[in-house]
Design a protein around this nucleic acid. Sequence first.
DNA 1: TACCTTTCGTGAAGTCGTTCACAACGAAAG
DNA 2: CTTTCGTTGTGAACGACTTCACGAAAGGTA
Lengths: 230, 230
Amino acid sequence: MTGSATSSSAVEPVRTAAPIEIPVRMVERLSAYRRQLRRWVAEGRTRIYSHELGALVGGTPAQVRRDLMTIGYTGSPARGYEATGLIERISQLLDAPTRQGVALVGVGYLGRAILNYFSKTHPDLPILAAFDVAPEKIGRVLDGCRCYAMTELEAVLGTQPVTVGIVAVPVEAAQGVADRLIQAGVRGLLNFTPTRLRVPPEVYVEDVDIAVSLEKVAFFARHGAGSDEE
Amino acid sequence: MTGSATSSSAVEPVRTAAPIEIPVRMVERLSAYRRQLRRWVAEGRTRIYSHELGALVGGTPAQVRRDLMTIGYTGSPARGYEATGLIERISQLLDAPTRQGVALVGVGYLGRAILNYFSKTHPDLPILAAFDVAPEKIGRVLDGCRCYAMTELEAVLGTQPVTVGIVAVPVEAAQGVADRLIQAGVRGLLNFTPTRLRVPPEVYVEDVDIAVSLEKVAFFARHGAGSDEE
DNA sequence: TACCTTTCGTGAAGTCGTTCACAACGAAAG
DNA sequence: CTTTCGTTGTGAACGACTTCACGAAAGGTA
């Protein structure tokens, strides 16, 4: 629907080399595909079938093929898809053309967990700065990431290409933090607090609600498991 | 399947059993509704309109009404829904009739974050035990939760009504932990590692994948925010 | 070369959840 | 008592994603 033939679309920026309108769910799957593909390649495999990739991420072969078709990546019958090329194609879509980074606000246990996890694992999309109010954390370098005082937020973000903010602070502080991050140029927020952040419409917010997830698991642990998923 | 109209139902738990088949998404919303309703009541309000509740969780009024209709809770025009009654109705559906608890495996930063968060906030669905391999953590009580050695897992779970397990260990250990939890009677898993756990079909697995969430945010931060949600 | 097997690419059909739109209703005001 | 306003309950329309099903193509094999 975007880009071509059919009319409909009103707002049509159509700038760079990504003319595709990718649905939310597919972005999740593409991200998952890529990570599994990297493992696959790291194990020395070079080609992969739709059913293999499907199994790795918990999807069906048909879904994998449909997704890859949508992003315009073509495999070959009897040889499947070429893994490294596919990784590259996905990266082309998901990654920013210019270096883009993340700011973490709140270096409590959750913040530390995130830092620790991402420092090892994430080449693209690095966490460029962390912020906290606790004086003993300020100035330290945790998992390769410098921790600044909250008061320095605007200054630091002025010098770094940060477009995403992680809100890992107590719930009372969340809205204030969000406001400051957005004011400083952040366009996407990953929110771990159980509040609905009020943001301007151009800012994307993703809520990660562990309490809800846990209750969901508890519920389906009791009733039929149905189909597991994410 | 679920206690049908015929009188022959074998195990009919208690009063007003739930003959409803609730879709996954709705469980998430109900959980969110309940939390917001508790805040609402804590602020002294007693009644709530669909559009108010919708705003609190980021949904539409129509969706809220549809959900409440589905769970069979009736409001009144011009007065809205009665908050405490609604909380009770949701709890009736989401909570186990008998005491049910959670086991946490992996007391790293992430595990600590979860403990810390839930100790304050969660009356129902308590974390009954934590497990780790690190000797210095064993025996300690963190946020009101006792930390045991991994070797004690089966023994401890034998004495506690644990039906849900949280997997917050390094990825290499995840499958082994899952196997042991399931063997010990757990029927639902909250998995924070980036692997697809292999489990028997009656076990429900919920994957929380922070890396994927972050990449999603980064993507939509760049492209149109579309509609934020979750 | 001819055949056989397996997988891809994709139009079409199906499924499921969300949103629309409106009648019925209760409360409050005139 | 009657009118007006705003909200609920809900059938029906809508839309989006998922799955199905099948023709075509590419290796492998004799």
